[in-house]
Simulated scan of single mutants.
Amino acid sequence: MAAEMLAGAGHAVVIAEAMPTPARKFLMAGKSGLNLTRDEPLPAFLRHFGGATGAPPRTPGYFDQGKAVFGPPEVMDWARGLGIAVFTGSTGRVFPVGMKASPLLRAWLARLDARGVRLRTRWRWTDLENGFLFETPEGPRQVSADVAVLALGGASWPRLGSDAAWVPLLRDAGVRIAPFRPANMGFRVDWSPAMNRHLGAAVKGVALRAGEMV
């Protein structure tokens, strides 16, 4: 999205992708329907940000004084602008009608290409000295940029590219890195025999409480 906005403003944009193909985690998310956002009023939407303490969101790029710069309506309009119809499910989550990520991704990449965005695959970032150094299929490439947007992923899906190999690069440059923490969790329950017929079914409309945390 950053590339799209920058290209739309007339800037020359290069996307350096370490993997052979882009957006692999995006496509993985599409296997479960591709939850794009939640269709709900802005005050309720903002409560999902800031962690368990209920602190206000620290994302000024998306929210400004409680007014969404790119909130749920904008996300839905963005998808529709790519020719993808969306619908709101029973839990308020918004999905493409086709419940797939690939049609949206193809339309998105085509629009980026039409706007002059250059996608470079198999470009792995290896150094930050004197610009950005990448290992590429054609050998090392040094890139200097007026502005760099780092969209690096975490450490949860190494086979999809999120291997956290960027952490030492930024840490050695003096950037403070917050420790990784799990965003999802699993738990084991010794269900009673009456629950056996429900095992494997989707769980919806539930609330979990652990001490004071909900």
Rank of each mutant, 00 (worst) to 15 (best):
V149K: 05
V147P: 05
N130L: 13
H198M: 10
A183L: 15
L169C: 04
V147Q: 05
T136S: 01
S144K: 15
L133G: 04
L160Y: 02
Q142M: 11
L169F: 03
R171I: 07
P193K: 04
R181Y: 06
W191D: 06
R171Q: 13
S192N: 10
N130E: 14
W157S: 09
G161N: 03
D172C: 09
A151N: 05
V167T: 13
D146R: 13
F187Y: 04
P140T: 01
E129P: 06
L152Q: 03
D163C: 09
I177S: 08
Q142V: 12
L152F: 05
R197Q: 10
G154C: 09
P182C: 02
S192A: 14
G200R: 07
A183Y: 10
A148P: 03
G131I: 15
V147M: 07
A155I: 14
R159M: 11
P179R: 09
P179T: 03
A145R: 05
G154Y: 01
V189A: 02
W191Q: 04
V149M: 06
I177L: 10
G131N: 05
I177A: 10
S192C: 07
D146P: 08
L160R: 00
A164S: 12
L169A: 02
N196S: 10
R188C: 09
A164D: 11
Q142S: 12
L169T: 01
A183H: 14
A164I: 12
V189H: 00
V143E: 02
Q142R: 15
P158T: 04
L152S: 02
D172G: 08
P137K: 02
A165V: 10
M185V: 04
P137L: 00
L199H: 07
L199E: 06
L152D: 00
G200L: 02
G131P: 04
E138M: 07
M185F: 15
P168Q: 08
S192W: 09
G154M: 03
R197I: 10
L170A: 12
M185C: 10
S156C: 11
L152M: 05
L160I: 07
L152C: 03
V189R: 00
V175P: 03
V189C: 01
V167D: 06
R171P: 06
A155L: 11
A165E: 12
G153M: 00
G174V: 11
G186Y: 02
P168R: 06
G131H: 07
N130T: 14
V147D: 06
W157K: 07
M185Q: 07
E138N: 08
F132K: 02
L170T: 09
N130C: 12
E135F: 02
E138C: 04
D146F: 15
N196G: 09
A165S: 14
P140Q: 00
